[in-house]
C-alpha cells in the first residue's frame, strides 16, 4: 500500500514537473501568465497614475499601494451577471471570447524555458509560435460580429485591418532573426546567441521593428485603435459584461506577454546567462527569460502615459510603409551579416 502511494506520488510529481505539463500550466504558462496579468494591469495603472501626478489604485490594499486591485476587479467580474443581449448570436457571443482567451495562451507552449526544458522541442518552433499568434485576430472578428453592435463592428473591422498589416512585418522581422542564427528552432537560436551575443546587437533594426509590432498588435498606445474609447466605446467588447468582459480585458495582456517572451528569446538572449543558482534545475533559467519579457511588457504599458492614439489610416500607413520597409531591410541586413560571416 505504502509503495503504491509512493509510486503514485512520484509519478505524479514527475508528471507535473515534466515540461509537457509544467510549461503550459505553471510556468511560463497559465499560472505565471495569470500572476503577470494581475501585476501588469496594476503596474500599468500605477505608472500612468504616477506620471499623471495622482495615486492610482490604492484603497483596495493600502500597504501594497493597491497591488490587489485586479484581484478585486476579477472577483467583481466573476460575480456580476453576464447579460446576453437578445440580438446577439448567442453561441458565438459566449464561446468566441473563451476560445480567444485559450488560443492567446497557445504560443507560450512552444517557447522553451531552457536548453533542456521545452514542452515542444520542434525543428520549426519559431514558425509554430508565429502561426499560433495569428489566430488571435480571427476570433476577435467573431467576437465583434457576434455582438451585433455598430461600435463592436467598427472595432472588429479596425482590428481586421490592423492584423492584416502587422502580421507581415512581424513575421519578416522574426525571420530575420532566424536567418541571423541560421535556425527555426528557438532553443538553437538562444544557444547561438549565447555563443555570438544577443540578437539585438546584431540586428537592431529587426529588434526595433519587432518591438513596435508588439505594441502595435496588442493594442497598446499609440496603437490602441480597435478599442478607442472616445470613438467606439470599447470596440469589439462593447456588448460584453461580467466575466466575459473580464476575459476580453485580459486577452491583449496575455498576448503581450507571449510576444514579449518570444522577443526575449529572439533578441535578448533568452534565458542566458545561466549563472550558478540557476543551473541547478533546468526550469530555473526561465526566471531570467521571464524578467526580460517583463521589462518589455512594462515598457509597453508605460507608453499609455506618453502617447495619444493614432488614427486607423495613419497606423496602416505606418505598418505598410515604414514597418514593412524596415522589416525587409532588416532581413537584408541579416543576410548581409551572414555573407560577411561566410566570407570572413
Amino acid at each position: 500500500m505504502y509503495d503504491l502511494i509512493n509510486y503514485l506520488w512520484e509519478t505524479g510529481l514527475n508528471l507535473l514537473f515534466s515540461p509537457e505539463i509544467f510549461e503550459p500550466l505553471v510556468f511560463p504558462g497559465l499560472i505565471a501568465a495569470f500572476s503577470l496579468l494581475i501585476v501588469v494591469i496594476w503596474l500599468e495603472r500605477k505608472i500612468a497614475a504616477i506620471i499623471q501626478m495622482r495615486y492610482g489604485p490604492y484603497y483596495i490594499s493600502r500597504h501594497t499601494e493597491g497591488a490587489l486591485q485586479l484581484v478585486a476587479d476579477l472577483l467583481r467580474f466573476l460575480f456580476s451577471e453576464v447579460i446576453i443581449p437578445k440580438s446577439v448570436d448567442k453561441i458565438a457571443y459566449v464561446l468566441a471570447p473563451i476560445i480567444l482567451f485559450a488560443f492567446t495562451f497557445l504560443p507560450i507552449v512552444v517557447i522553451p524555458v531552457s536548453k533542456d526544458f521545452a514542452a515542444i522541442d520542434h525543428e520549426y518552433s519559431l514558425l509554430i509560435a508565429l502561426a499560433l499568434m495569428t489566430l488571435y485576430s480571427s476570433f476577435l472578428l467573431i467576437v465583434s460580429w457576434a455582438s451585433n453592435n455598430k461600435f463592436s463592428f467598427i472595432g472588429g473591422l479596425r482590428e481586421g485591418f490592423l492584423s492584416l498589416s502587422y502580421e507581415i512585418p512581424l513575421i519578416i522581422s522574426a525571420l530575420s532573426a532566424a536567418v541571423l542564427f541560421d535556425s527555426f528552432n528557438l532553443i538553437e537560436i538562444v544557444e547561438k546567441q549565447a555563443a555570438m551575443g544577443w540578437g539585438i546587437f546584431y540586428n537592431p533594426l529587426a529588434a526595433i521593428v519587432f518591438l513596435v509590432v508588439i505594441i502595435y498588435s496588442t493594442s497598446r498606445y499609440p496603437y490602441e485603435i480597435a478599442e478607442a474609447e472616445s470613438e467606439i466605446v470599447i470596440g469589439p467588447f462593447t456588448e460584453y459584461t461580467g466575466i466575459l468582459f473580464g476575459l476580453g480585458m485580459g486577452i491583449s495582456y496575455i498576448k503581450l506577454y507571449s510576444m514579449s517572451l518570444l522577443y526575449a528569446v529572439l533578441f535578448l538572449g533568452g534565458w542566458e546567462p545561466v549563472v550558478w543558482p540557476l543551473n541547478l534545475h533546468p526550469v530555473l533559467p526561465g526566471i531570467i527569460l521571464f524578467i526580460k519579457a517583463f521589462i518589455i511588457v512594462a515598457f509597453s504599458v508605460f507608453l499609455r502615459a506618453v502617447y495619444p492614439r493614432y488614427r486607423i489610416d495613419q497606423a496602416l500607413r505606418i505598418a505598410w510603409w515604414k514597418l514593412f520597409t524596415l522589416a525587409f531591410l532588416s532581413l537584408l541586413f541579416s543576410y548581409g551579416i551572414k555573407i560577411i560571416e561566410v566570407m570572413g
Binding site: A48, I51, Q52, A228, A305, Y307, P308
Partner: peptide
C-alpha cells in the same frame, strides 16, 4: 478625446 490620458490629467 485623442487618447492622451496624461494631457487630460495634467
Amino acid at each position: 478625446l485623442i487618447g492622451s490620458s496624461t494631457g487630460f490629467m495634467w
